[in-house]
Design a protein around this nucleic acid. Structure first.
Lengths: 190, 190
DNA sequence: ACTTTAAGTGACACTCGTGTCACTTTATGA
DNA sequence: TCATAAAGTGACACGAGTGTCACTTAAAGT
């Protein structure tokens, strides 16, 4: 019926991700993306009215992908297993944390599509939140986590932890197991 | 000799700080700053050739101020006291962490003034680093910190920790003491 | 072969931040 | 009181990103 597209949706999302992580929300431009995909800037406007639409749409895609992974946490029954899986997951999907922050930079827009995507993101975020909340609750029920720790703080520690820059370039496994150890039992002796 | 200035250096730094924290490095513009100081944009160019010069100069000011505080850690002798002081310090100077990140966004510039400021920032950063390193070493010598923990990870935990968003809006003292408790002895029982 | 239709192009007009500069304003001290 | 010099102003030219649109290109169906 019509001419073949010069780029796939996968290409587009990959490039978007790459450019977002490299230049941040403000630094991202349609020119860059067009350039990377080897098409003209004008062509992009055939698919996305503007940056907000494109990025919010991409964010929904990325968050859905992450939630598929996160829901697998239900396959593990004990808190200990879930804990290991969660740490493993966020270390292997490091960017998601930064990307979620970038997603929050999209200005609340009156544009219908953007608004829909933002509502969907809110929904996904809420799902993530409840999923993680019940994970923490389980830890308390099983008597593994200290009950005095607020749930938000528990989760905050886990998510902030992965953003600690490994300046000394310690080997991955050593780094992760040190972090787990600190999360479990702290940095002080006894 | 000449006409009176419409703004003080303190005004200028305060406004710069405020705008940087609100809009980030890229979002910061001379128009905003001029507007806030109630002068014309052109006037700012009498003092700063461009954004890089202004912001790098401000960052040096802010870092020096922070280092004065940090050096006071030497007044405390035991590791425990130093630990308490450090946590207190970075909680009461929360923005410094975000500001330091923003400072790193200033592109390495050929401009002499910017270059000088950046070298001074590097120097200040190095001072901060060594000061904190010896703090950690003391903790290990005193047998308080687990020796297996890499120094960078120890410091990373402390600095990332303050960035955990207190979504549940727990009272400050409760929040801080929970964080200290986790840093000391972790989130798991026993 | 020819029409249809979506893909893609590049030029245009617009906005916004930048850096400059001739000009105006206003304290000061000679 | 008046020359001086720093403070401040606003207009200009420039570059970069935006969004649009008439136009060209190339598969696919008839």
């Amino acid at each position: 019926m019509a001419r073949e597209r010069k780029f796939s949706t996968v290409d587009l999302y990959q490039s978007t991700k790459h450019l977002l992580l490299e230049h941040g929300y403000d630094g991202f431009t349609f020119s860059m993306l067009a350039n990377r995909l080897d098409i003209s800037r004008g062509a992009l406007y055939k698919y996305f009215e503007n940056k907000e639409v494109l990025i919010s749409e991409y964010m929904v895609f990325e968050m859905k992908k992450f939630m598929v992974q996160l829901h697998k946490i239900q396959e593990y029954k004990s808190f200990e297993e879930k804990f290991d899986y969660l740490i493993h997951l966020i270390f292997h999907d490091q960017e998601i944390h930064r990307l979620r922050e970038i997603g929050l930079e999209i200005p609340r827009s009156p544009n219908t599509k953007v608004h829909e995507n933002q509502e969907q993101l809110d929904q996904l975020h809420y799902e993530m939140y409840t999923s993680l909340q019940s994970f923490v609750e389980l830890g308390k029920q099983e008597g593994i986590i200290k009950p005095s720790i607020p749930n938000g703080l528990f989760l905050g520690f886990i998510f902030q932890t992965i953003a600690i820059p490994n300046h000394e370039n310690l080997p991955y496994s050593e780094w992760v197991s040190s972090i787990k150890e600190i999360l479990r039992h702290g940095m002080f002796k006894i």
